[in-house]
């Protein structure tokens, strides 16, 4: 996992990019992986969260919301166990630049038609963005309601369409917003909570993907 880059990207705002990026970075920080969390979103959501009391548990942060972020990621990733990049929720050179250097791209997508549509645009950007570079990507269903028909429907449809999905969702839980009030994530405030377990499961899947990719390219 050393030196790996995980970019969280979606061309749709409000899909849960920042929440997922912060939760993964904090989870890996608590596991001692020495992560770097890069805020490449001009809205500075990560930095705003880190300004609060618990400052995301002291995760190392870097703010760079310009297309040269790919260069910074290349330079910084070697010194960290994993680099997590939060990207803007709109069409941007910054997103493409962050996709270009990713070992793994996670695309958060809500179980709704508009989100699925923008997820596909994100995948298209990923495939076309940097001329031939094709990082591994997975879609992550976010803000799902457990047991809802729409969640199952969207998952089944995406799988049928060939879109790779993480097996674990990031269900809608108040724990994220509550922890956010303290500048924290559920892994910090409630380590045994279901929200914390959801993040742990997603992180474990991401770790396995990164390990596989590393083994294949070694």
């Amino acid at each position: 996992m050393s030196g790996s880059v995980v970019t969280i990207a979606s061309l749709k705002g409000g899909s849960g990019k920042t929440t997922l990026a912060c939760c993964l970075a904090v989870h890996w920080h608590l596991k001692g992986y020495k992560p770097l969390l890069i805020d490449a979103d001009p809205q500075k959501s990560v930095m705003r969260l880190a300004d609060r009391d618990q400052a995301l548990g002291g995760v190392e942060l870097l703010e760079q919301a310009d297309p040269n972020v790919w260069n910074t990621i290349k330079q910084q990733s070697g010194a960290h166990g994993v680099t997590v990049v939060d990207t803007p929720g709109f069409d941007s050179d910054i997103t493409v630049a962050a996709l270009a250097v990713a070992d793994l791209v996670l695309i958060p997508v809500k179980a709704s038609p508009l989100d699925v549509d923008r997820m596909m645009d994100t995948v298209k950007t990923l495939m076309s963005g940097v001329k031939g570079w094709a990082p591994t990507f997975r879609c992550v269903l976010t803000q799902t309601i457990r047991g809802s028909v729409i969640s199952r429907h969207v998952r089944a449809e995406l799988e049928e369409g060939g879109f790779p999905l993480l097996a674990n969702d990031m269900p809608n839980r108040v724990a994220y917003a509550e922890a956010g009030l303290f500048g924290a994530t559920p892994s910090m405030t409630m380590p045994d909570s279901p929200a914390s377990q959801d993040i742990s499961a997603i992180a474990t899947e991401a770790e396995a993907l990164l390990a596989t990719k590393k083994a294949l390219t070694a």
């Binding site: 069409d91 050179d93 997103t95 270009a100 950007t125 963005g129 940097v130 001329k131």
Partner: peptide, 9 residues
């Protein structure tokens, strides 16, 4: 999104 590419490496 495809229009985004020209200025990136």
């Amino acid at each position: 999104p495809l229009m985004v590419q020209s200025s990136i490496p």
